[in-house]
Amino acid sequence: MNPLKIIKYGKYFSESRFVAFATRYGKKLAFVQRAVVLFLCLRDQDTPKYVKAVIAGALGYLVLPIDIVPDTIAALGWVDDVAVLGIAFKIANRYIKTSHEEEAKKLFPFGH
């Protein structure tokens, strides 16, 4: 999926929806900690707007209950979500700070 297509999912992102998602799945899914890193990067004032748009789109896709591959399909249902997060990470990598990583580990020690 290309980054411009990811941005359109930003309309589904909200801080409260993401926190609810992270709380619900934080101990069940290892990639939630990585999503929290992106969330913290999104909230950082030093992150450029275009990077924030991609992150919001990726997190919006993550919290959206209807995906390309439904999340209810065991294991396979999360593959598309992880792929979208991977693309967002590639774009945001230069703006992810050590403090984002450390805070995510404190909030969600499970995962990597």
Rank of each mutant, 00 (worst) to 15 (best):
L4G: 00
L4T: 04
K5E: 12
K5R: 06
Y9W: 13
G10D: 03
Y12R: 09
S16G: 00
S16E: 15
R17P: 00
R17W: 00
F18V: 00
A20Y: 05
A20Q: 11
F21H: 09
A22Q: 03
A22L: 03
A22K: 03
A22R: 03
T23D: 13
R24S: 12
R24I: 04
R24F: 11
L29D: 06
A30T: 13
A30Q: 14
Q33C: 04
R34V: 11
V37A: 04
L38F: 06
L38S: 09
F39Y: 15
F39I: 08
L40P: 07
C41S: 15
C41A: 15
D44N: 08
D44F: 05
Q45L: 14
T47I: 02
T47G: 04
P48T: 03
Y50D: 14
Y50G: 00
Y50V: 10
V54C: 09
V54N: 08
A56L: 11
A56R: 15
A56G: 13
G57C: 06
G57Y: 05
L59W: 05
G60F: 01
Y61V: 04
L62I: 07
L64S: 13
P65Y: 01
I68E: 13
I68H: 09
V69K: 01
P70C: 08
T72V: 08
I73Q: 03
I73P: 01
A74Q: 09
A75S: 10
L76R: 08
G77V: 01
W78V: 04
V79E: 01
V84H: 06
V84I: 14
G86T: 09
G86S: 13
I87E: 12
F89R: 07
F89D: 05
F89S: 03
K90C: 04
A92W: 01
A92M: 02
N93C: 02
I96A: 08
K97Q: 13
K97Y: 06
T98H: 04
S99C: 10
S99G: 04
S99R: 15
S99L: 09
E101Y: 10
E103N: 07
A104C: 07
K106P: 03
L107M: 13
F108Y: 15
P109K: 05
P109L: 07
G111C: 05
G111P: 03
H112Q: 09
